[in-house]
Design a protein around this nucleic acid. Structure first.
Lengths: 239, 239
DNA sequence: CGCTCGCTTGAAACGGCTCAACCAAAGTGG
DNA sequence: CCACTTTGGTTGAGCCGTTTCAAGCGAGCG
């Protein structure tokens, strides 16, 4: 659903947003008039793997998951995204197709820039291109760490690693629960295991007094205790 | 070993090299005078994970592996690199440390650009920055495909996937052998399994007339037959 | 109220890893 | 030049962790 009333980038509070941080120039002020604002309900897929690229999305408000579909329809969730973050790699270039799918996990407002607008921005504003380059380099590093984790960690470690990732990215509320509610299946699809294994691991961690949980809500009792469990894997952690 | 006699970028034949493709400007001609040429013997580590960043490397000639070291010293090889390709992500920025290690797998000549030179290049030549951004975006896509593969494939499939990757990247010689010789351990470290499993898989594939091998040399009998084995994983393949 | 969906648990089967022994080739030193 | 050592490849057997399958449970919803 495309809204006519755009969110004004100048009034936006997402200080980490690449666009927000590069608003000073006159060109950018012109460019942001050309963006589309899209509203998504929970569990709505707004990028489909294999479909022609339709530009880049920024999350104005909400949360989403980025994934690739594998054999027998099995999903591999690559990352979760929140306010101010980017979805739709390579939403530039010509005649390309998306290499990932994206689905909102709660009601979400998206800012969309078409290929044409994006390309013009990148050509005219080198500092923006530079920031995009840094963004991709960071993501690449994160992804490469994930390759190592999935290849080398046990199921228990992968689940702990995932919960700590969610904690870093979304934080926790006053009650000590993570600011994101995922199904066991989604946790499994990110961690690279099955939902039963996630359930078993979470049960164990509760018994060991490392976690609390009520339905989908998960809370970490003591972050450093949890970190200890996977510390051997993270000599050089940087994600 | 740093050589005094630099390889002249203008005379270089690596047409895919980002530097080579952006030589036209006067600034670049000045910048390439500032590069270092480094010679590596086989099995020499020239980037150490965790060490302060010392710029970016291009392979002028040779081959190398890029890896992260995991638990109990287990290596995860992330990719192999050949003539014209880049090693040392984020060899820019200040006060950062390398997040990967790199080791030559045959005698190799490297072109090194220091942080300062690289930063100046990226600031003054937007088209170069743009190409770097595209490079990272491509690598990110490749890495995310690898996450999915490692998470979902069986050992047999991972080994086949690895051999096909090596075929795409390095090609084969007149005798039908891949233009790269790796130990079983290295194949395992890339595929995300153990050397015994690689050996077993290769033995089976030989018996099934899908592969030939003599020592480290591996050849593919029929590429499309091998591709069939993993086709179910690659609805949207793009790496 | 009955249905569905997601969570939970147990048991069994499978695949992959580990360990150990053997072999071949290549390199080293007397 | 030959014996010795080392390194990497190979194979088999047993074990362990993970996945799969199946069944039960509870909350939420039409």
């Amino acid at each position: 659903m495309v809204l006519k009333s755009k969110i004004d980038c100048n009034a936006c509070t997402n200080t980490d947003c690449l666009i927000k941080r590069n608003l000073s120039s006159a060109i950018m002020q012109k460019m942001i008039q050309l963006k589309n604002t899209v509203k998504c309900k929970k569990n709505q897929q707004f990028i489909l793997e294999g479909a022609p690229v339709n530009g880049l999305y920024f999350i104005q408000q909400g949360k989403a998951k980025v994934l690739k579909t594998g054999i027998y329809g099995k999903e591999q969730i690559l990352r979760f995204v929140k306010d101010g973050e980017i979805i739709g790699h390579r939403g530039f270039g010509i005649g390309k197709n998306y290499t990932i799918s994206a689905t909102s996990i709660e009601d979400t407002i998206l800012c969309n820039f078409t290929n044409e607008v994006l390309n013009e921005m990148l050509q005219k504003i080198p500092s923006l291109t530079y920031e995009f380059m840094l963004f991709y380099a960071e993501e690449l590093n994160r992804s490469e760490n994930k390759v190592k984790s999935i290849a080398q960690m046990t199921v228990r470690e992968k689940v702990i690693d995932t919960i700590l990732y969610l904690y870093r990215k979304f934080g926790e509320n006053q009650k000590g629960f993570l600011n994101i509610n995922l199904s066991r299946q989604e946790i499994a699809d990110f961690a690279g295991t099955t939902d039963e294994q996630v359930i078993r691991t979470i049960s164990s961690l509760k018994k060991e007094n490392l976690l609390i949980s009520q339905g989908k809500k998960i809370g970490i009792k003591n972050v450093s205790d949890l970190k200890k469990e996977i510390s051997e894997h993270n000599y050089f952690l940087n994600s």
